[in-house]
């Protein structure tokens, strides 16, 4: 019974959302508003049970939640978790106009966290890592002579990287040879975007295939 109900609700909502492709209509509005309400609450509930309870309440006061969530019997309180609790409460001062400026302290922690982690993460994997990946021989040797195809490819690659980087130069006027290189760079970027777009089309179609298959199974359940 519950399964049939679930199947029907899901199928009807699927149709309601697809109807948006034709134009905005009351069915879509209904599905949209339901989805917004349910999903907002879903993430809040997940936040409570998978973050707030195990990572705050259980750490500060283990005995209080030992029945509710899985945790070791002999868990000891970890008092440094009082820090996020304070920041969290400071965040809520936004509800009180007079002291709402205190929420900036919590915001400052969040921003510091963002800046600190992103600085190192991108420095390592995207800056240093990509330079490392580019340091390969331009002329590729094969047994006996050198591989023409591979050599052309690696020349194209290195020219592409350099020119596309030149396109991103902000403080120098893009004229003359520099401008020509920058234009070549934007061409490389365009090929990149076209290629990635073309490659992705397929994955997007498969999402629809999945949905149509679901509707097919719903139809099959009726007959």
């Amino acid at each position: 019974m519950a399964q049939t109900l679930e199947l029907w609700i899901a199928a009807l909502l699927t149709f309601m959302i697809f109807s948006f492709l034709y134009k905005d209509n009351p069915f879509y509005k209904f599905a949209e508003h339901l989805f917004v309400g349910v999903s907002a609450a879903y993430w809040m509930v997940i936040g409570i049970w998978s973050t707030l309870m195990p990572n705050l309440v259980a750490r500060l006061w283990p005995s209080s939640v030992s029945g509710f969530i899985n945790m070791p019997e002999d868990a000891q309180p970890e008092y440094h978790f009082i820090i996020p609790a304070i920041f969290g409460i400071l965040m809520l001062t936004r509800l009180v106009e007079r002291i709402s400026w205190l929420s900036r302290w919590a915001m400052a922690f969040v921003i510091g966290f963002a800046a600190g982690t992103n600085f190192t993460r991108y420095l390592q994997s995207d800056f240093v890592g990509q330079i490392y990946n580019s340091m390969y021989p331009i002329i590729v040797k094969a047994d006996g002579g050198f591989a023409l195809g591979a050599t052309i490819s690696s020349i194209v690659l290195i020219v592409g990287v350099i020119c596309a980087l030149i396109y991103f130069f902000f403080s120098k006027e893009h004229t003359g040879a520099f401008g020509a290189a920058s234009r070549l760079g934007i061409w490389f970027l365009m090929v990149t975007f076209g290629a990635a777009f073309g490659y992705t089309v397929m994955a997007r179609i498969s999402l629809l295939t999945g949905r149509i298959q679901f509707l097919g199974s719903w139809l099959a359940s009726i007959f």
């Binding site: 596309a164 490389f188 990149t192």
Partner: peptide, 10 residues
Amino acid sequence: IPNMAGQRAI
């Protein structure tokens, strides 16, 4: 090749 060059620069 070209896609990769663009991705890397980006």
